[in-house]
Computed example of a mutant assay.
Amino acid sequence: MIEFTVNDMSCNHCVGAITKAVQAAFPQARLEFDLAQHKVRVEDVPGAEEVKKVIEEAGYTPQLEAA
């Protein structure tokens, strides 16, 4: 599982936008969110850098968490 901190993710609209963007790029992706902690966890994707780029293109600033 890949985990990002996305400090500019603050509401359910943000969750929806990130979900839509990631699943458009990687339809098999599974996402979990902890909105209070600004965390996004992603599974079943090719790699962290690919997902980070998609989240950035959706307008957010993800920071990859150390494994």
Rank of each mutant, 00 (worst) to 15 (best):
Q37F: 08
L35S: 12
E57H: 07
Q28I: 11
E56W: 02
E49W: 09
R30M: 09
A58R: 00
Q28F: 06
E43W: 08
G59E: 08
K39N: 04
E56S: 13
V15C: 11
E50I: 06
P27K: 09
A66C: 09
I2E: 09
N12H: 07
I55Y: 05
A29H: 07
H13I: 11
V22G: 05
A67P: 01
S10C: 10
A67H: 03
V45D: 05
Q28G: 05
L31Q: 02
G47A: 11
M1Y: 10
P62F: 08
V42I: 14
L64R: 05
V51G: 07
F26M: 05
E43V: 03
V51L: 02
T5F: 10
K53P: 01
E32T: 12
A67Q: 07
E65V: 15
V54G: 02
E56N: 06
G16V: 01
K53T: 07
H38M: 02
A67C: 04
F4R: 09
T19Y: 08
L35Y: 07
Q28E: 15
M9P: 08
D8N: 15
V6Q: 04
R30H: 13
N12G: 15
E50G: 00
E49S: 10
N7Q: 15
L31N: 05
V42F: 11
S10W: 06
E65M: 13
E50T: 03
K53I: 00
L31E: 11
Y60S: 03
C11A: 12
G16L: 11
L31W: 00
A25Q: 04
E3W: 06
K53L: 03
V6I: 15
P46C: 13
E49L: 04
D8Y: 10
T61S: 00
P62R: 04
K53F: 04
F4Y: 14
D34M: 12
A17K: 10
I2R: 04
D34N: 15
R30N: 13
V54E: 00
D34K: 12
L64W: 02
D44Y: 13
A24K: 13
M9E: 09
K39Q: 14
H13F: 14
Q37H: 14
E50M: 14
D44M: 10
Q28P: 01
F33C: 08
Q28M: 07
E57C: 03
I2M: 11
K53C: 02
T5A: 13
A58I: 01
A21Q: 07
V51I: 02
I55C: 03
L35H: 09
T19F: 04
E49Q: 12
N12S: 15
T19E: 03
K39T: 04
K53S: 04
T19P: 00
T61H: 02
A58F: 04
G16Y: 05
E32R: 14
T19I: 00
L31Y: 02
E32C: 00
V6F: 10
P62Y: 09
G47C: 08
V6T: 08
N12D: 13
M1L: 12
A36Y: 12
K20N: 03
N12A: 15
A67D: 12
Q63L: 08
E50Y: 03
M9F: 06
F26E: 01
I18A: 04
A24D: 11
A29W: 09
T19Q: 04
G16R: 14
C14T: 03
P46A: 14
E49G: 04
D34W: 11
